[in-house]
Design a protein around this nucleic acid. Sequence first.
DNA 1: TCTGGGGTCCTAGGACCC
DNA 2: TCTGGGGTCCTAGGACCC
Length: 437
Amino acid sequence: MLALVDGNNFYCSCERVFQPRLKNRPVVVLSNNDGCAIARSDEAKALGIKMGAPWFKIRHLEEEAGLVALSANFALYGDMSDRMMTLAAGLGHMQEVYSIDESFIDLSGIPGDLVRRARTIRRRIHQWIGIPTCIGIGPTKTLAKLANAIAKSAERKPGSYPAHHAQICHLGACSPQELQALLQATEVGDVWGVGRKIGAQLRAQGVHTALDLQRMSPAAAKAGWSVVLEKTVRELNGVPCIEFEDEPPAKQQIACTRSFGQPITELHDLQEAITEFACRAAEKLRKQRSHTGQIMAFIRTSPFREKDPQYSRSASIPLPTPTSDSAHITQAANAILKHIYRPGFKYAKAGVMLMDLQPATRQQLTLDLDNDMPENRTRLMQAMDEVNQRFGRGTLHLASAGTAGRHRAWSMKQERLSSGFTTDWGGLLCVNNDLLP
DNA sequence: TCTGGGGTCCTAGGACCC
DNA sequence: TCTGGGGTCCTAGGACCC
C-alpha cells in the first residue's frame, strides 16, 4: 500500500504561515517577473482564477475582490518543503519525494489502522509546520494519487464525494462497491496521466469516467494510445506498473531558462543572460556530481506578440571532454548564442540546457588534469559554490567577457533569500572570463 | 488556452547497415 | 536497375506531470 502526502495550495500555504493576515483571503503566488499565477488559495480558485492565469488579466480582482498577489519566494518554499517531507516520511519506511509539495510513502509492513496513522501525521505537519495537507492511500501510485484528489475534493467541494473521505482517503479500505462509486464520480481527465489531449480523445470514444477507463482492456489502451495509458489502466486495477523510487535518480538533463521582464534586442544583453543561465546550470550539475557532454542554448521571441516578427532557434554543441566547469559551459553557450542570434527581433525568453549527463568519474578527472591548472580550477569552482551557498545564489558569478559591471538591461526580480535579507545586483563580485585560464 | 520553469517518457521516422 | 527484409541508432516532437 502507498500513501501520497500533498501540501494544499502549497506556495500560498507557505506564505500564510508567515502572514496570517492572508488567511481566508483570496491569494495568488506569481511566477518570475510576476507573469502569471502559479499557486492559488481556495478563495482565489473560487473567484475563477485558473492555474497559469496571466497577472494582467486577473489584476482587476485586487480592487474588486480583495485579491492579494505575492511574488514567488522559492527559497522559502524549498525550506518549508524539506521540513514537511521530514515529517511525512514518518508515515512509513520509505519515501519518494515526487515534487516540492508531494511525496509517496511506502506503507508495506506498517501494521494497524493506516487512516488513523495518516491522521496523526497530517495533524503533526499542520501543528509543527503550519501547512495543511491531504493524504491519499491506495495499492498503486495512480490509485494513491486518485485517493488524494478525492480527499481534496471531498473537503473543498462538499457533495463531490462522500464527506468521510475528506482530508484522508484510503481506497484500499473501500468495499468494491464503494470503490466503483468513487471511480464513477471521477472524470477521466482527473486521472493521473490523462491530460487534456488524451482526455478529449477518450471522451470521444465514450470513456468519460475513471471507472470507464478502469474497465478498458489494457490491450485496447496500448493499441489506441500508448504503453503509458496501458500502465494507467493496469494501475487503476491495482496492478503496480510505476516503480517506487526510494532515492532520486540523477537528472538526465539540467535546464535554466527564463522569460525576460522586458524584451531584449541586443546581443550583449542576451550574452549576459545566457552567461548567468549557464553558470546556474553548471552549479546544479556540480551539485549532483555530474558532467555534461552536450550543451544547448535557445532564444525566442514572444509567441503572444503576434504582430511582432517571430524567431525561435536553438543549437547545441557536443563537448569533446565532458565537463562541469562553469567557464567551459559558459563559453560553449555563448558560442551557440553568437551562432543563432539575429538582430531585429524582440527576444522574450532564453535558456541553457545541459544534456548527455554522466557521473563525474575518476577517469574524467584524470582527463581534466591535462588542462591548464586543473587543481586551481577545481578549487575555484568549489569555492564559488561554497560562497554562493553561504551568501546566496549569484553572490559570486562569472561575467561574460567584457560585460562585467555594465547595467543589466534584462531585469529579473530580486530574489529574497531564505535568511530574510535581500541581495542587490550592485557591488557583486564578478570573475571575468578573460581572467580565467 | 493563454504571457512560468523545470522535468520525464514514448513514438515516429530517417539514416545507415547488412 | 530493380526488388526485399530486418535491425540499430539518433533526433524531433508530442504528451504528460508539478
